[in-house]
């Protein structure tokens, strides 16, 4: 299995996710500079977290128009799995690979903390490593994670089982109190209709080592590697 991490000016979780991928994959992913014209043939494309283009204009908006994104969109449409984390999720919505938008957090502040998430679907390829209904702990770190979508769009996500992670309390209950950023329906991560493009605000790459936070994120990468190898 081969993976590529796209590096934009201002990306800052590219190294972290490369470390996580390497750990599960046994080899380093290709780091692809946004300015390089083409993407190598890979089995997984990753859009990392950070502040691409300084988050100027809108988070992810300029990255979505970066030349490399044409290739990413084409490959995604051809069925190559794409994972977008945090700023990567914002790019995926801006590039219309996923529906909805990520608005400013309801509390109007950047939030960095580990939060409980309920795994809403255990599917190939992204969440094969988890049981449906499992509660996992993964850190968030964002200023614009307030997932927002119109009523019809939300219904489609619900009906088509596209919601992958929801913010919940430690017992797995999805409550308003456990919603850190005001996201609609406590949405922390969604997939496209085919289930091949995942966008999530929490950072699974930050929990791949017992020394600093546990292994709840590692299971996502292990599951991906198992599914795609």
């Amino acid at each position: 299995m081969k993976a590529a991490v796209i590096v934009f000016p201002g990306s800052n979780c590219d190294r972290d996710i490369a470390v996580a991928l390497q750990q599960s994959l046994g080899k380093a992913p290709d780091m692809v500079w946004h300015g390089s014209g083409s993407l190598p043939a890979v089995d997984l494309i990753v859009l990392p977290g950070g502040f691409s283009y300084g988050d100027y204009l809108r988070s992810g908006a300029m990255a979505a128009h970066s030349p490399i994104m044409k290739e990413v969109v084409a490959k995604a449409k051809a069925g190559v799995p794409v994972l977008g984390v945090c700023n990567g999720f914002q790019m995926l919505t801006e590039a219309k690979l996923l529906p909805g938008v990520l608005m400013r957090n309801a509390g109007l502040k950047f939030i960095c903390k580990s939060v409980p998430l309920r795994v809403e679907r255990s599917h190939y390829p992204f969440t094969a490593g988890y049981d449906k209904g499992a509660v996992i702990h993964i850190p968030i770190a964002h200023n614009e994670g307030n997932y927002t979508i119109d009523g019809d769009g939300l219904k489609r996500l619900q009906d088509q089982d596209q919601i992958v992670f929801r913010y919940c309390d430690a017992a797995g209950q999805v409550t308003p109190e456990s919603n850190p950023n005001g996201a609609q329906d406590n949405i922390a991560g969604i997939v496209n209709e085919k289930g091949t493009v995942l966008g999530m605000m929490p950072h699974p790459e930050r929990v791949v080592d017992p020394l600093n936070g546990g292994l709840d994120g590692r299971r996502l990468f292990d599951g991906l590697v198992e599914a795609l190898s």
Binding site: A20, C112, D209
Partner: peptide
């Protein structure tokens, strides 16, 4: 205060 600071990025915060 510190929840407004990213204290996990770089993946090495023990």
């Amino acid at each position: 205060i510190w929840e407004q600071y990213d204290h996990h990025v770089m993946g090495d915060t023990v």
